[in-house]
């Protein structure tokens, strides 16, 4: 399971994470839509995308170095931890948005 198997699993998780990013990004755009400071709006929305997609990419790039003679260093573990923190945060965000969208969907159909 170590090595290639784990990398495949992380690729799948990363793909799900990127889907979440798109959903959360849409939610943040809605949230900041009426803000007067356009630069702040861009900072929040695109700043979010930059950080979260960046962490996902760094994790995937770093993953290949886990299996060196040094193994998983504290730096690797920090990157993984930040990724997991963002993933769970996004998961909660997406669940709420999703429930809201289901409600909107059925109201729209009536």
């Amino acid at each position: 399971m170590h090595g290639g198997g784990f990398f495949t699993i992380f690729l799948i998780i990363a793909a799900i994470s990127l889907l979440f990013d798109w959903y959360v990004f849409a939610g943040l755009k809605t949230l900041t839509k009426e803000w007067n400071f356009i630069k702040l709006r861009y900072l929040v929305t695109f700043g979010y995308l930059f950080v979260t997609v960046g962490v996902t990419l760094i994790l995937l790039l770093d993953f290949k170095t886990f299996q060196t003679a040094k193994g998983m260093t504290p730096l690797h573990e920090w990157i993984l931890s930040i990724f997991l923190t963002l993933l769970f945060t996004k998961l909660f965000f997406v669940i709420i948005l999703f429930l809201g969208d289901i409600g909107r969907f059925f109201l729209w159909r009536r």
Binding site: G27, L28, T30, L31, K33, E34, S81, L84, T85, F88, T89, K90, L91, F92, F93, V94, I95, I96, L97, L99, G100, D101, R104, L107, W108
Partner: peptide
């Protein structure tokens, strides 16, 4: 867009809910 105010409210709720695991993990 439909119910923009409600969509915004949902997003605000989502931010609050997501803050719980975020702060917990930190």
């Amino acid at each position: 867009p439909f119910f923009p105010a409600r969509r915004k409210f949902i997003s605000e709720v989502a931010i609050l809910v997501a803050a719980v695991p975020f702060s917990g993990f930190l």
